[in-house]
Design a protein around this nucleic acid. Structure first.
Lengths: 190, 190
DNA sequence: TTTTTAAATGAATAAATATTCATTTATCTT
DNA sequence: AAGATAAATGAATATTTATTCATTTAAAAA
């Protein structure tokens, strides 16, 4: 007996991401996904019950992927700035290397395919960052502003960098990334 | 002879924005727009040739609205920081007071309804800001970093504030806005 | 190899959605 | 007020898109 092929799901996901990047969530159809994935339309329904299930599965997969990257190598005991820099870099790295997923996620947050509850709980992946920032405030490294805004500041900027770098085909070498980090750091530091 | 009613177009636009906020661009149908606008489906086609035309018109309207706000009261002769603060506040104000338009625009940039050329040219509204930042670098007020990133920094953050403030229903009084401006200013200042 | 089971296919069907148009209603003109 | 013109209606039609399923192909088990 052969089991359902994970690889095929990857194929489908990859095709979906590509199409969403090109045409938005509003632009995908099951036929277009199937065609892009080089499978028959009916095959899609072997792996997913319907369109919503496909989008929803991919959403969860992308959230999982991002959670795996954001706090890679993060050591809660390390000095504040070290930890902050690491997480900043990790998120940045994620946005750049998985740009299609980033776009897809963003669009999911304004889509009828993902329910409200899922949208809210999936934001929980930022929790360790929130804790680090709380600590940074206590230790007087950074401004004493509601963590809510500090995260908005950090994440909003990172997302925008990733978008512009991709759309305008800007090279982002280590040096430029550090310049960008400096902007962010100067903003939040006490 | 009665002319086509601008007010009705407003009604249609308002309905579209509301639905896009609730369900995303992927979620709107002509029937849902008509229903929300309290008109018959056929009436939509008196004002717009088709769905694409509706979305495209609204897109242009939103771009126009934003351009009108971003540089309101802006005086090119004023000191750098004065001008920067004004534009920052104006964009922030726009994002907050026209949040549905902001969301709609963002989704349009990843939609099949707007062609590439339009997407690119509509970014030109930031030109005066670009010039101000160039001047700020010459006058040594701000960091000597590619203006491209400076705008990403500023705009990315503003957009994220607006989103979070709206979704999490956070009050944004003058004081909090100034705190947020401070983060931004400390980031870009030399 | 033969049998059995899973996976894949894609044309056919069902459902949703865009668009049209004959008719009605409202507004303007004389 | 009567006639003419524009605007609005919404059911009917056309089109697109989701989903199903009878059939074929491929893989595993016996």
């Amino acid at each position: 007996m052969k089991l359902k092929d994970d690889n095929k799901i990857d194929q489908i996901f990859k095709a979906t991401l590509k199409l969403v990047k090109a045409n938005g969530l509003a632009g995908i159809t099951m036929q277009s996904v199937a065609k892009e994935a080089k499978i028959a339309t009916g095959t899609l329904y072997i792996y997913f019950n319907n369109k919503e299930a496909l989008v929803s599965s991919l959403f969860h997969q992308c959230i999982k992927n991002s959670a795996g990257v954001f706090f890679k190598d993060y050591n809660i005991k390390a000095p504040f700035k070290t930890g902050f820099h690491l997480i900043w870099s990790n998120i940045m790295q994620h946005r750049l290397s998985r740009f299609e997923e980033t776009l897809f996620l963003e669009q999911c947050f304004h889509s009828p395919f993902i329910d409200e509850h899922t949208k809210v709980t999936s934001k929980k992946i930022f929790e360790p960052l929130r804790e680090l920032l709380e600590r940074g405030k206590k230790e007087n490294h950074i401004k004493n502003i509601d963590t809510f805004w500090l995260i908005a500041f950090m994440v909003g900027y990172i997302n925008e960098i990733a978008k512009r770098a991709t759309y305008f085909n800007k090279k982002l070498n280590k040096e430029i990334l550090e310049l960008n980090f400096q902007l962010c750091w100067d903003g939040i530091k006490a």
